[in-house]
Design a protein around this nucleic acid. Structure first.
Lengths: 86, 86
DNA sequence: CGTTTTTTACCGCTATGACGGTAAAAAACG
DNA sequence: CGTTTTTTACCGTCATAGCGGTAAAAAACG
């Protein structure tokens, strides 16, 4: 089960965070402490903020055991190019 | 082909952006104009900046035809809960 | 290879994201 | 239900992300 996030539904991230936080039985302060971020930014994200910083979001998602991946038509070219040595 | 991004390899995003930009034959200014962001933030991202804002990154990824998705052990619970009406 | 054109690297400035503090609201008791 | 405890909502402040301008470097010519 992977949920695609597009430009239009960025605010879905907030719903995902809230759901996972509640499922884990955590208050915003709990999660903030675990993730090492401020409580305010969790409030902001859960309310659909689009301007969160990437590292902040990653701290949260990591604490909630959510993983991110990038996909695209030429991503395999990137991958194979990475392995090239010399 | 999906590339997982974790906290430790956030800077991989910069490499992905640069590869896609070059593959499209775009300068930073070209891409900046297309994506509707400043050229500086592209430079920053390609140099591994971890504090980019989410909407800025999404503008770039969208212009480069890269998609993002979230995964996790209880994501299906979230999905089915979303469909519940009444 | 000197000149022109394009691209990249880096600067200072300004708008704003992340923060802790606190009031308001909601939940959990006896 | 009145009281205590927990959670959420919303401020004011400060550090900094994103911006355009420009110098430095690289590429593309004749």
């Amino acid at each position: 089960m992977a949920i695609p996030i597009t430009m239009e539904n960025i605010s879905e991230i907030g719903k995902i965070v809230r759901f996972h936080r509640n499922a884990a039985g955590l208050s915003r302060i709990d999660l903030a402490d675990i993730a090492g971020v401020g409580k305010t930014v969790i409030y902001d994200i859960e309310h659909g903020k689009r301007t969160v910083q990437l590292n902040t979001l990653f701290h949260l998602l990591s604490a909630l055991n959510i993983r991110i991946s990038f996909e695209g038509p030429i991503m395999h070219q990137y991958e194979s190019q990475k392995d090239e040595k010399d």
